[in-house]
Amino acid sequence: MATIETLTGREKVTVQPYCEVGKAVVRLVDCGTERFLRSDNYGRSARDIPGKLSQTIQPDKAAFERLVDLGKRHF
């Protein structure tokens, strides 16, 4: 897992949506000197190992604010 420090927006593209994942668990992480929002994403139940962690996304404050800004402009 790595901390996302820089988040860059790209032009809109037309693609097919991904299938739904099994679940995502969002954790509010406080390391004392830094805070993060961590999203642990799990795959579908049809995977070889159901319930296995698929990926973790952990933006720092600046990257999270950029993500919120991109989402507001997009939606």
Rank of each mutant, 00 (worst) to 15 (best):
V13N: 10
E20Q: 12
S39W: 11
L67Q: 08
A63W: 00
R47C: 15
T8D: 07
D30C: 10
N41P: 00
C19L: 04
V25F: 05
G51L: 12
F36A: 08
I57A: 09
G43E: 09
D48R: 08
G9Y: 08
E11G: 06
P50C: 07
A2F: 13
Q55V: 03
A24K: 15
K23S: 15
L53T: 09
V25C: 04
H74W: 10
R10N: 13
K61P: 01
S54H: 00
Q55R: 06
E20Y: 11
R44H: 12
K12R: 07
P50S: 13
R66W: 00
T56R: 12
I49A: 12
Q58Y: 05
A62M: 09
E5L: 05
D48V: 11
G22K: 10
S39Q: 07
G32M: 11
N41Q: 12
A62F: 03
C31V: 11
V26D: 11
V25T: 13
S39T: 11
A46S: 14
I4G: 04
G22L: 12
F64C: 09
V68Y: 01
V29I: 14
G32K: 08
L37R: 09
T8S: 03
Y18C: 06
K72T: 02
E5V: 05
K52G: 01
K72M: 04
L70E: 08
L28W: 04
S39M: 14
R66M: 04
V13C: 13
K12Q: 13
E34I: 00
V26I: 15
V29E: 06
I49G: 01
D40M: 09
N41G: 00
V25Y: 07
F36I: 09
P50A: 08
P59C: 08
L37P: 00
P50N: 08
L7A: 12
P17H: 08
T14F: 01
K12L: 12
Y18L: 14
L67V: 10
R73H: 04
L37C: 09
R44Y: 02
T3K: 09
K72F: 04
K12I: 04
V68N: 01
C19Y: 02
V68K: 01
R27E: 15
S45Q: 03
C19E: 10
K52I: 06
G22P: 07
A2T: 12
R38W: 08
T14M: 04
K52H: 04
P17I: 01
S54N: 03
R38N: 09
T8I: 12
V29N: 00
C19D: 11
Q58A: 11
H74K: 05
K52T: 02
R47N: 15
M1T: 11
T8F: 04
R44W: 05
V68P: 00
R10K: 14
S39P: 00
A46T: 13
E11S: 10
V26N: 12
F64P: 00
V15G: 02
L53W: 04
A63Q: 01
R35G: 05
G43C: 06
Q58R: 14
Q58S: 14
S54T: 05
A63N: 01
E20R: 13
R66D: 00
S45H: 06
V15N: 07
L53R: 09
P50R: 02
T33A: 05
Y18E: 14
S45G: 07
T8L: 08
R10W: 10
P17C: 07
